[in-house]
């Protein structure tokens, strides 16, 4: 996946939406910008499969040596799959954040919320501002 094609939450999670049968599935990860800011990752806590989350809920945690950040769900829905191998291979998260470093898939229950997410250009602008 190319970062240009994704949607972003202000809290630095990316979202890729696919249609699976009748439902929309959001694949979620962490942006390259956020991973750079976190520096060396040491720990990742994934959400449990089957959990219902609301957009903006904390559904996991990512930890570096000096900082810890909550992962916020960009969408409302049910967690249908997680990248279970990822916590043991944190290198994948840094090396391929938009591919092998995906974190969870959520079955979207409110598509309208996708409009609250940022397009790549707008997200880049936000990052540029935060960088200062």
């Amino acid at each position: 996946m190319q970062p240009q094609d994704l949607l972003y939450a202000k809290t630095h999670e990316w979202v890729h939406v696919e249609t699976d049968g009748g439902s929309k599935i959001a694949t979620i990860g962490i942006s390259h910008f956020a991973l750079e800011a976190l520096t060396d990752l040491v720990f990742l806590e994934l959400p449990e499969v089957g959990r219902q989350v609301k957009a903006g809920d904390s559904f996991g945690e990512v930890e570096s040596v000096k900082a810890v950040s909550d992962l916020y769900s960009p969408v409302t829905g049910e967690v249908v799959e997680v990248n279970a191998a990822l916590p043991d291979q944190l290198g994948q998260l840094t090396d391929d954040p938009y591919g092998a470093g995906w974190i969870a898939k959520i079955k979207i229950s409110d598509e309208a919320e996708l409009q609250n997410l940022l397009a790549y250009a707008d997200y880049e602008k936000q990052c540029a501002e935060e960088g200062h």
Binding site: V42, F43, E63, S64, V65, K66, A67, V68
Partner: peptide, 12 residues
Amino acid sequence: LQTREQHIRREK
């Protein structure tokens, strides 16, 4: 594992 601690995680 200092990120468990109050000086980093504060109220959490």
